[in-house]
């Protein structure tokens, strides 16, 4: 264990934990792709909110390669993969309760998405 000293504080606060991984990994998706969110129900850690599971959205941006929380939380390695922003129509998520003009943007890892059929 490497105890944080006062001398190290400025660097730690200025660096944090970028979670970005500097490896070349081919993205599974590109901006404009229609995707279906997987219906994941594991008891492990994940970053998939229930309200998008099984829903269809569109990839708007590829943010590059990041550590995968589902494995990282359980000391199973970084399993690096691309993170995308995916946009959903509010009506597709919430039915009549959603405003027809509104959009939801959610960030998702490769493993949370499949090409929509």
């Amino acid at each position: 264990m490497n105890m944080l000293t006062t001398a190290m504080v400025p660097t730690v606060l200025a660096t944090g934990d970028p979670a970005r991984v500097d490896v070349e990994i081919a993205p599974k998706f590109k901006a404009g792709d229609k995707v279906t969110v997987v219906n994941l129900n594991k008891v492990d850690h994940n970053r998939l909110p229930a309200y998008i599971k099984g829903k269809v959205g569109t990839v708007t941006f590829d943010h590059g390669v990041f550590v995968f929380p589902d494995t990282s939380a359980h000391r199973k390695g970084p399993k690096p993969q691309h993170v995308y922003t995916v946009v959903f129509n509010a009506r597709d998520l919430w039915g009549e309760a959603g405003h027809p003009r509104d959009r939801m943007y959610v960030d998702a890892w490769d493993d949370y998405l499949e090409h929509a059929r």
Partner: peptide
């Protein structure tokens, strides 16, 4: 910073 957890181990 001491390496006791990462962000995911912190959240779970």
């Amino acid at each position: 910073a001491a390496g006791i957890y990462n962000v995911d181990q912190f959240r779970h």
